[in-house]
Design a protein around this nucleic acid. Structure first.
Length: 289
DNA sequence: CACTTGACCTGTCCGC
DNA sequence: TGCGGACAGGTCAAGT
């Protein structure tokens, strides 16, 4: 569920909230959520200062002063929430997680030397935190294979088009979800951008002409930017670094709008399946040729 | 190599 | 009300 805009929103929040803080303790309840923690925690984590928070695709990287990096993937239900020292204060709004963490979904707790905390929450335990030397991060398999960042200023429509050459026999939705083609697109923004460019998700890549790809490129970039501006989309679990929900989902054109009228033509949005995922389309605007 | 499917998990919802 | 099963969706391993 956290896709590029959601992870970027978390990154910006953490960049503002945790830079310069020093880690005092680390605790984790589920080995798979932090696999190498036992061996490396004491040497490179305790006493380390937070230097920088970066993002690549849907992966977060928290650089430490020990020349090590916390590499984090939220997968579907992961959250990274910072809670300041005012944790035990009164009067927090009911939609805030302040005062409610840790809870039964908390997998890793970072305590800072000033008494504030960063919680890694993950209901379904698919997400993970890993610690490794900063210099080795680009060598991990995922970083070697992942495609370009779609929002980079120098990423052109032609480059976008060329990235799909390898996947000419699959559906456009499967190709969009393939992180080695373009980074950061997940189920929500795949459906939204395909609706925006009037392409049926099951259209074979080789059947899509270049002008349609240009439209898809333009829609995808506009939608990702719009979502970042709105703090990402909260479908079920997503919250930002302050534990607050995003509002993009209220502006979604098709995602989770089955049964409601298409904003372009009024036809009822339907939910179907493509690339093994729930898929939302306007059956009139998006016709399979 | 390209492509698809199942596994990893837990919580929620739907039908009986 | 309880219970089984489908579903949610990011990535990787294993399959064709």
């Amino acid at each position: 569920m956290p896709e590029l805009p959601e992870v970027e929103t978390v990154r910006r929040g953490l960049q503002r909230l945790i830079i310069g803080r020093t880690i005092r303790t680390v605790n984790h309840d589920w080995p798979k959520s932090f696999p190498n923690a036992d061996a490396d925690v004491r040497n490179f984590l305790i006493g380390a200062e937070i230097v920088e928070v970066r993002r690549r695709a849907k992966v977060l990287m928290i650089d430490l002063s020990t020349e090590h990096t916390l590499v984090i993937h939220l997968k579907m239900t992961g959250q990274l929430v910072y809670i300041g020292k005012e944790k035990f204060g009164a009067g927090h709004p009911s939609d805030s997680l302040v005062g409610r963490l840790p809870d039964k979904s908390t997998r890793v707790i970072f305590e800072f030397s000033d008494g504030s905390h960063l919680y890694f929450n993950d209901q379904r335990k698919f997400g993970w935190v890993r610690l490794m030397p900063t210099i080795e991060v680009p060598n991990i398999d995922f970083m070697q294979k992942v495609g370009p960042e779609p929002l980079e200023a120098d990423f052109t429509a032609s480059q976008f088009f060329d990235r799909f050459a390898r996947r000419k026999n699959s559906s456009i939705k499967a190709a969009l979800l393939d992180q080695t083609v373009v980074a950061g697109v997940g189920n929500i923004y795949a459906d939204e951008s395909l609706w925006g460019s009037k392409i049926h998700p099951l259209t074979k890549v080789s059947d899509i002409r270049k002008p349609s790809f240009v439209a898809l490129y333009t829609e995808l970039r506009a939608i990702l930017n719009e979502s970042i501006d709105l703090g990402g989309s909260t479908d079920r679990n997503y919250v930002n670094a302050e534990g607050k929900k995003g509002s993009y989902i209220e502006f979604a054109r098709v995602f989770r709008r089955e049964g409601q009228p298409c904003r372009r033509c009024g036809t009822e949005i339907i939910k179907t399946r493509a690339a093994g995922r729930g898929t939302h389309i306007c059956p009139r605007c998006q016709v399979l040729k």
